[in-house]
Amino acid sequence: MFELRLEQGSLLKKVMEAIKDLVNDANFDCSATGFSMQAMDSSHVALVALLLRSEGFEHYRCDRNISMGINLANMAKILKCAGNDDIVTVKADDGTDSVTFMFESPTQDKISDFELKLMDIDSEHLGIPEAEYDAIVRMPSAEFARICKDLSSIGDTVVISVTKEGVKFSTRGDIGTANIVCRQNTSVDKPEEATIIEMKEMVSLTFALRYMNSFAKATPLASQVTISLSSDLPVVVEYKIAEMGYIRFYLAPKIEE
């Protein structure tokens, strides 16, 4: 039997909103460690990895490891029915082909349950090697979302360059070009407004803005985003989820032919 209870149910709603447009179907793996998911988008250009550690839930029981194949659009439909303040319980019995979502209002005066059919999904689990990155940028997630949105009105791709001057986001399109430079800024009153750049090597990589805008849907989950870049690796765009875990988006770069 598998059962988890999360008082802050809005968190699961935000997770689904962040990934439902990127991935169609995914296997959610439930183990003693926690609730996790790894899936690629249909073009195999981006990969999303989610981890919600068991300690982060108010209640977590997993008698044996199970993998639940779920259509994310359908799961998002169900989670949309939960109130923002609702307590969410997810439950699956061994050997059944469905998972139950229960929503309780904070005052316990409304209790709903939804049963979602599980699917058989043949998905490949990729090994993501530990890597040292040439540059790691931490910045306000809302600022990153704004930059990706603004640049996508000019061009289709973004060049992210990290130098000792800061991090530069550039694009070009039919109407012209755009460059946005963010400098390191640690002298802010609130740590969530800081921009911190750790650079070992200068790095410059090109990515499709369409995917960056999709990743930015995770902005409500975290006030800061971490962008890790290396010249020979996919970029990692990470949003930490409270004290529970993370959602990481990996995106393969575009390279000169």
């Binding site: 690629m40 073009s43 195999h44 250009v45 981006a46 990969l47 490949e124 689990h125 990729l126 090994g127 993501i128 090697p129 791709t157 090109t206 499709a208 690796l233 996919p234 990996y250 393969a252 770069p253 575009k254 390279i255 000169e256 032919e257």
Partner: peptide, 14 residues
């Protein structure tokens, strides 16, 4: 002209 790399060019199946 840019070539879009794939995730599978970097990460392998377990």
């Amino acid at each position: 002209p840019c070539l879009q790399k794939k995730i599978l060019d970097y990460f392998n199946g377990d």
